[in-house]
Write a protein that binds this DNA or RNA. Structure first.
Lengths: 166, 166
DNA sequence: AATGAAACATGCTCGGA
DNA sequence: TCCGAGCATGTTTCATT
């Protein structure tokens, strides 16, 4: 796997930039005791490997009017047309995540809506027409934890040396 | 609500920086036909309002070894000590989201683990000791959609003018 | 709340180790 | 793979409108 090629410096860079995409690369360089050019090259490499997939500003959903967050499990009448359903879901901007899952549901969604009424509209007007046999909503009152992947604890060094997975 | 104070320029800025935190503010300025200083001031304002809560690089979970993503619903034996449980969950880095929810569960988690075995370890060794009466896991095979909040469609102009919510 | 200019800091590239 | 240097570019502040 790709992460076997990551060393301690890559890990430290990821740790620093994961939580602050605007941090100057020169500051990362100073924190790592290497040159700015080295950081530049490493980030280029991490991007080419597909480990870094871009950056984003974190926006508070409630502050821009999205007061309802919900997890919605779906079962399809015709599970054979997953792909069409997923394409349709991509055209619903309020659907921010869609997973193929084990267990009770064919698809599992995370949805942001302005309020509960808006959420119901989305489910009734946009999801139901996709051909659902069942849907199940869980509304989040409050996101008590919402943070990026753990970088510190990832198994980089362990994997770099001699673990063989191919 | 805070978003009532946002105008079209704020919205355009949010739209541009939400999907690329490294975009030069001067480039945003050119796209918006205003000065760089104006963008600087606007982003400062959006930060002070709490609408912008920082920035992050997007890292591909699988590429750094997190091959299992799961949603876990929890019920507590003693629902009165939510707060202690949440504090404990914050100390488990693999728990990236935790929601208070309606419906079947007291808490609803999103967890990243290296593999299914690691996920089971987390649930058995770290979650069970918190005092669970029940837990229910749904494993994601594949995240088909994973994207930020919709900015274009948010109800900014509609709210700015004369909607009264206080 | 926006501007332009100035001072300062960073991003990026290249030759060499 | 890294470094250092050079130049292009971006960031931030401030006086002004």
């Amino acid at each position: 796997m790709a992460h076997r090629s990551l060393d301690r410096l890559d890990k430290k860079i990821l740790h620093l930039i994961a939580e602050d995409a605007r941090i100057p690369f020169l500051e990362v360089a100073r924190a790592c005791n290497v040159s700015g050019a080295a950081i530049h090259q490493r980030i280029q490499k991490l991007t080419n490997l597909g480990i870094l997939k871009g950056s984003q500003f974190v926006i508070d959903p409630e502050k821009i009017g999205y007061e309802t967050c919900a997890f919605v499990g779906l079962n399809l009448k015709n599970p054979e047309n997953f792909d069409d359903v997923v394409d349709a879901l991509k055209r619903i901007p309020e659907v921010v995540e869609c997973h193929y899952t084990t267990g009770a549901y064919d698809l599992f969604l995370k949805i942001y809506a302005f309020n509960n009424h808006h959420l119901l509209d989305i489910i009734h007007d946009k999801l139901q027409p996709l051909g659902l046999s069942r849907s199940d909503s869980t509304i989040s009152y409050n996101a008590v934890i919402d943070r990026p992947l753990p970088i510190i604890d990832m198994p980089i060094e362990d994997c770099v040396t001699d673990t063989v997975e191919e």
